[in-house]
Design a protein around this nucleic acid. Structure first.
Length: 305
DNA sequence: AATTAACACAACCGCGATGGC
DNA sequence: TGCCATCGCGGTTGTGTTAAT
């Protein structure tokens, strides 16, 4: 719907940015702030489309950008988050202070993906004319990029029509409490677009129960993927002191509740509450972690351990 | 030193989502 | 309610740099 003309039209510049263009863009943002990218052309005379300006600012000019030298810890976190989230680069970037989605995506393709046992090089050797390679979506093209798509990611689980996960209530409940609390530790601010808006993640709305349940399937895989120790969940119970009864008793749910039954003994209301809790953590914004906010990077890493 | 292959990353493209009118 | 402008995202491409021959 209603697409603007491409950047290449209207006599706008393309390709590498010049220092002068960078300066003009930075000056504009300094004065007007981020957003309203399309006004830049009108107000500054910069011959770039708004889209290009936004990208340049977000990926290159922003003052809090940390460039180059992705540390081992960061790489480890990227790998784990990728297992968790799939190719949701912006979400991954949101957990890596100063890193951009583009940078992480590039880093993944050039450094991490090729280390993966089952992955193939992203690009064809130069001897192969790229024009002859089938475009993405066709069988050949899909093969190249599907190394990532085929990853058994939680995202794919999320997108699957909701089916109650076959995990035990105890596991779900414990994971919920553990994960919810841990995620909440991450500094966050609100962002108009969050996980729920993109993927229909639960927001406490009864209509989203299936999504909630799917998300707990997600949690199950999450722990599997991260090689977590399920038996340790008992220890978590001891800490939270709230989940133990679920292992022995089927939770009763109010009759007037839309949740007509408990799911494997796990109270759906608790699931919903957890989901809300989960969503309190902003998983999308690159701004969620500012350099001066003391982001507990190691805490997140240890959580993922 | 010249050529070729591979890498690294900036930038572009198309699409979906969202909000305003 | 539908249209349009805009934004944000993920996938892909282009191109400069580096390594290998």
């Amino acid at each position: 719907m209603g697409r603007k003309p491409r950047c290449s039209e209207d006599g706008l510049n393309k390709g590498a940015w010049t220092p002068l263009e960078d300066e003009m863009l930075a000056d504009y943002v300094k004065i007007h702030g981020e957003g309203k990218w399309s006004n830049i052309v009108k107000e500054t005379g910069l011959k770039r489309c708004g889209k290009s300006c936004r990208l340049r600012w977000r990926n290159y000019l922003r003052p809090d950008i940390k460039r180059g030298n992705i540390s081992d810890d960061e790489e480890d976190l990227i790998i784990r988050l990728h297992k968790l989230l799939g190719n949701r680069w912006s979400l991954i970037a949101g957990r890596l202070p100063g890193r951009t989605d583009n940078e992480i995506k590039n880093y993944w393709h050039t450094n991490i993906a090729k280390k993966a046992p089952h992955s193939q090089p992203r690009r064809q050797p130069r001897s192969v004319d790229r024009k002859q390679v089938a475009p993405a979506g066709s069988e050949n093209g899909a093969e190249t990029s599907s190394n990532f798509k085929n990853h058994q990611t939680i995202e794919s689980q999320c997108c699957t029509p909701g089916v109650a996960a076959p995990t035990t209530a105890l596991q779900e409940n414990c994971m919920a409490q553990d994960l919810g609390g841990t995620l909440a530790m991450a500094p966050s601010n609100t962002h108009h677009e969050n996980v729920s808006s993109r993927k229909g993640l639960a927001s406490g709305d009864d209509d989203n129960l299936s999504n909630i349940l799917t998300d707990f399937h997600y949690m199950e895989d999450f722990y599997k993927i991260l090689d977590s120790d399920y038996p340790k969940l008992n220890d978590i119970n001891d800490i939270t002191g709230t989940a133990a009864h679920h292992s022995n008793n089927t939770t009763q749910v109010d009759d007037d509740d839309d949740y007509s039954m408990s799911i494997n003994g796990c109270n759906p209301r608790e699931i919903a509450e957890f989901s809300e809790k989960l969503l309190e953590a902003d998983w999308t914004s690159n701004n969620c972690v500012q350099p001066d906010q003391g982001f507990d990077f190691m805490s997140l890493l240890s959580f993922l351990d």
